[in-house]
Write a protein that binds this DNA or RNA. Structure first.
Lengths: 212, 212
DNA sequence: GTCTGACGGAACGGAACCGTTCCATCGAGG
DNA sequence: CCTCGATGGAACGGTTCCGTTCCGTCAGAC
């Protein structure tokens, strides 16, 4: 499968030279293969073929397959900063339903592809968590902290538990139950689990009219 | 749709060269290898070696690797029936912290090992969901329905969302965040997410299906 | 005691990968 | 124009795994 990332300048037989983004092209090809066959079945040959590079080039830059894959994961676009919609509900929807969120097909497939590797390669797991999970978790944490400042949620909420709950529920539905995550299902989880769990007292106030 | 897997031992006379549980021994060995190296890297040779069987024997009974693994998964012990502790909280803890629950190391490792296969083998995924996920989900559903009858939880709770939430959260913490699930962490999730989400009491409806 | 047949073990050819090496080619800088 | 360095492509030997086949063994059926 040819990566959609066609080099703008070079085409039609001319050999793609190292234009600086050559490395990114290879990493993109790595992600394509990763999404296609998974981590365990990803081979350097397949990556080389997909990137129209030679294995020699690959090994010149990355000594091992884990190193290449980790680099590829790190090269993925980070989710945008989450816009302040004024409510926790709006922020969560904006964050998880947008690009780079839980409805991003490619990202979900890749996520599932590396779970095996996470369980069996400590170094891989560490890199994955700090580079991939970390930024997303930080963003999500920020959303909840904003809600905390607004007084939208209880002040005794354990963010370590609450913050990862939403992706956990959605990913579980996706991977193990076979549902395709869309905005609607994510909203249902937010409305029926997350918001009730953090709601303030008996009064369930998710009022958008209280911007701190 | 089970591929050519004879229901053995009950048949008289014909079979058991060794013992009727020889098949189960092989399936157990399969689970061992599965937990050890994962689905993609599981080889028939490794299973044969682990079971001290010959590959010929394996292929005599299971035509392919997916068939063998599916049979192995199906042979795993089902979780016990959940004792009625009198409260939803007690039932959840009893169910998920006990054997076959979310603290069962072997089961968790195997779970992570097959996620790759689930995403890429439709037949495998279907068998896995009906044989592995299905019974657990049914048990969990029963626990919540019992709570519903007790009047412990709101009667407008969407069980399709709520029931899989707990395993989702815990598995996410385990696989992606690298936490080891123990009774304490599961209890925290129950107390801070699940119970608040289903607790009786006033609740604003965020249900998009109710656009009053 | 003999026959039967499933068994474990070993080996096979073929295929896929790995990591390396060699080489012709092409782009850029001198 | 010409050299130099990085590249793509192809091939290598070595390893692993697949699915099959053959064979000697041994417990139960007869």
């Amino acid at each position: 499968m040819t990566p959609a990332v066609g080099s703008p300048a070079s085409e039609a037989g001319t050999r793609p030279r190292v234009e600086g983004d050559r490395e990114q092209q290879i990493l993109d090809a790595t992600l394509d293969v990763l999404a296609d066959v998974g981590y365990d079945r990803l081979t350097m040959d397949a990556v080389a073929a997909s990137a129209r590079a030679s294995k020699a080039t690959l090994y010149r830059r990355w000594s091992t397959k884990p190193a290449l894959v980790i680099d590829a994961l790190c090269s993925m676009k980070e989710p945008h900063e989450v816009p302040d919609t004024g409510t926790l509900r709006g922020d969560l929807i904006a964050m998880f339903c947008g690009m780079g969120g839980l409805t991003d097909e490619r990202q979900l497939v890749i996520l599932g592809s590396v779970i095996t590797a996470i369980g069996r390669d400590q170094q891989f797991a560490a890199a994955f968590r700090s580079q991939f999970i970390g930024p997303k978790a930080a963003l999500s944490l920020g959303v909840f902290e904003r809600a905390l400042e607004r007084g939208e949620i209880r002040d005794d909420v354990d963010l370590d538990i609450v913050v990862p709950a939403l992706p956990g529920i959605v990913l579980h539905r996706q991977f193990l139950m076979g549902e395709v995550a869309d905005a609607g299902s994510i909203e249902r989880v937010i409305d029926q689990i997350i918001l009730p769990a953090v709601a303030v007292g008996p009064r369930h106030s998710h009022d958008p009219k209280d911007p701190t």
